[in-house]
Amino acid sequence: MNKGETEQATQKYNEAIIVAPSLAVLYVNRGVAYLSLSKSAEALADAEKALSILATGTNPPAHSALAYQIKGTVYQNRGDYKLAVESLSKSIELEPSNAKFWNNRGNAYLFSKEYDKALKDYDKAIELDAAFPMFYINRATVNLQLKDVTASLRDLDEALKLNDTNENAYYTRANANVKLGKYDEGLRDYDRAISLKPKAPFYHARGIVHYSLGKYDLAIKDNTDALGLDPANIHALYSRALSYHKLGKNTLAIEDIRKALALKERSGLMRYMLAYLLFKSGQFSPAVVEATKAIDLAPQWRTPYTLRAASYAKLGSAVKAKADRATALQLGSGNRPVDDATFFEFNVFVPEDIDQ
């Protein structure tokens, strides 16, 4: 159903509940409708109401299972994966033969980065229903995280045998080929995915390949198209900023990073990127300010200290520059913020060519 039809269905359920306020299935169905309208609080309230009614009598377990699915989905969308798994597990207890329930819990494990548990749930979903393409795509996604690209490609080929117009299968297969360095194959699959259904992540991913190939104008175009579909796409803003910088357009790059930081203020990675761009633009005092913020967010990461040292040196603050260099040497390499890095779908490019 489209949004208008879903809203009409919700109104019908409202009217039905007035007539039969103790009929649990009405709350379950309305909860599903609320979910599709992104009304999570209302969906959760309906699921809770349905479960309270179902607890008082003998009712089909399917209604309870669906109510727990609604709760699990709401929690997952909120990023509370522990509660999501708890609710989705209760659905499985009630209906262990429902393949979609295993798949949905697998998704919660995937988002919480419990990849081995996700893989087991996807295996079970496929065991129960081997004809559903999305199960293979999801298992392929988790296998990419587990660095088993061969298994991932095998699942994606199977998904495309079942449905050769599934845009998500082409997108995920493109990701797998890119991880193998097969950029031509990856670009073909990104093109196919976009032709089937343009989505912001598809354009962004293709933009990363273009960036890797040094085709910065094409990377900018792809990320601009991604932002046209999703103006709050932080991945695309960061990636476009990198391409602008490569073309010497630091003013535009700084503008994109500031937009990204407005959406994710406590990002040590992007805060460093802003400091780096300011430094490269000759704005040394603002670079110090932003590098200090990056250090506050990621105190064990060496690179912001190196950048701040270089900025202090440009400003003639030799003592402060020396202190930061000493700290950088003590920290050694690595320690880039993990949460920032995993926030992006691919390896994050972090420029570190700092003139001392």
Rank of each mutant, 00 (worst) to 15 (best):
E114S: 15
A200H: 01
L88V: 03
Q356R: 10
S36K: 14
D189S: 08
K120I: 07
L331Q: 03
S212E: 15
E167C: 12
A313H: 05
A159W: 02
K113P: 00
T303D: 11
A16L: 10
N77V: 09
A130M: 02
R30N: 12
A16P: 03
A43Q: 05
V178T: 09
L94P: 03
I194H: 02
I18Y: 05
Y272G: 01
A309G: 06
K82Q: 11
P304C: 03
A219T: 02
A20F: 10
M273I: 05
Y216G: 10
A193D: 05
F346E: 14
S243A: 15
Y216W: 10
R271V: 10
A176Y: 05
L23T: 14
P286R: 07
I257W: 06
K100Y: 14
N233H: 13
G268P: 00
D46M: 08
A118T: 02
E345V: 06
N143L: 09
N175V: 08
K90A: 12
D217H: 11
L278P: 01
L54F: 08
V178F: 11
Q300W: 00
Y305G: 08
A291V: 05
G106Y: 01
A241N: 03
L227Q: 00
N250E: 07
V289M: 11
A118M: 06
G79F: 06
L162W: 08
Y305H: 12
V288M: 05
I254Q: 13
K280P: 08
E345F: 09
A151T: 12
G79K: 04
L227W: 01
L297F: 00
D129V: 05
K215C: 04
N104D: 15
S89I: 01
F135E: 09
L297C: 01
A236C: 07
L88M: 12
A174W: 07
L162F: 10
R325S: 11
A291N: 08
L247Y: 07
I208D: 11
G186K: 03
L94W: 06
F344P: 03
N103I: 00
L153S: 07
K117C: 06
I234M: 07
A50P: 07
F346H: 12
K100H: 14
G106N: 02
V25P: 02
A176S: 13
F111I: 05
M1Y: 13
L37Y: 09
A159M: 01
I137Y: 04
L274W: 02
L269F: 01
K320D: 15
I234C: 06
Q11R: 12
P61R: 06
E7G: 04
N177Y: 15
E290Y: 07
E7M: 15
K320H: 10
N143E: 10
T10A: 15
H245A: 14
G186S: 09
Q8Y: 13
A47E: 07
Q283P: 00
A298Q: 00
D355P: 05
K322P: 00
A328E: 05
L88Y: 02
D339Y: 00
A321S: 15
T224N: 03
A236Y: 06
Q69R: 14
P96V: 09
